[in-house]
Amino acid sequence: MNDVLPQPLAEIRDDFLELSQQDRLQLLLEFSDELPALPGRLQGHEDELERVEECQSPVFITVTVGEDGDAPDVVRMHATAPREAPTTRGFASILAQGLSGLSVEQVLAVPADYPLTLGLNEAVSPLRIRGMVGMLGRVQRQVQAAVASA
């Protein structure tokens, strides 16, 4: 499909595409249960995260570059999403797990249409897919801003 897709995101995409439409939705729900918790320094400081306006549910994200003992160009994505919004929470979890640990260059090279490649278009509304595209765009913009201010 796309040769620039980092391995973690390619593996997630392939896992979805190997499943039936109904099982893809189940895998998305499993991802929603696996959304990594915010690091301690961000807990109670959710106001420091950026709201993803493209999502109907209240999703907040932030990225770090080269913090917490990581190499200078390693990206970490952190997100919060309510348990009552499992689809959106699942999308946030896919991105948090798939992007965290990648280099700045790898994150910025992820195609904007990555969410469309997961094969969820029939199972999830276009509005929700657009929310994940928005999340990815905001992550990439935050990474660019972090690099520019470093």
Rank of each mutant, 00 (worst) to 15 (best):
S93D: 00
H45L: 13
G101Y: 00
D33N: 15
Q7C: 07
A37C: 05
T80L: 10
T62C: 11
R83L: 07
F16Y: 15
D47R: 15
G40D: 14
L42P: 01
A10T: 12
D73V: 03
L17M: 11
L25V: 14
A112W: 09
E18G: 09
S125A: 04
L5D: 11
Q142D: 05
V59W: 00
A145F: 08
R141M: 11
D113H: 14
D14T: 12
L27S: 09
L49S: 12
E18C: 08
C55A: 10
A150M: 12
G131A: 04
S125E: 08
S57G: 11
L136Q: 02
L27K: 12
P72I: 04
R51K: 12
D47T: 13
V124I: 14
F60Y: 13
M77V: 15
R128N: 04
L102P: 01
E54S: 15
P82M: 04
I12K: 09
E30Y: 10
D47M: 09
G90Q: 02
L9T: 08
R138M: 14
Q140N: 07
V4S: 14
R51W: 03
G134Q: 09
G134A: 03
P6W: 07
Q7K: 14
M77Q: 01
D113W: 09
L17T: 09
P115T: 03
E105W: 07
P36M: 00
L17S: 03
L35R: 03
A145G: 11
T80R: 12
V59P: 06
E53L: 12
L108F: 06
G131Q: 02
S149R: 15
A81E: 01
L118C: 13
H45N: 15
A92P: 00
Y114W: 15
H78K: 01
A150V: 10
E46A: 08
P58C: 08
D70Q: 13
A81N: 01
D3R: 13
V110P: 01
L99Q: 07
T80G: 11
A96I: 01
E67Y: 06
D3P: 15
A109Q: 02
A10L: 13
R128A: 00
V143A: 06
V104A: 10
V65C: 06
E54W: 08
E46M: 06
Q144T: 13
P86T: 00
P39H: 04
R24W: 08
M1N: 10
R13A: 11
P6H: 04
P58M: 11
S125G: 14
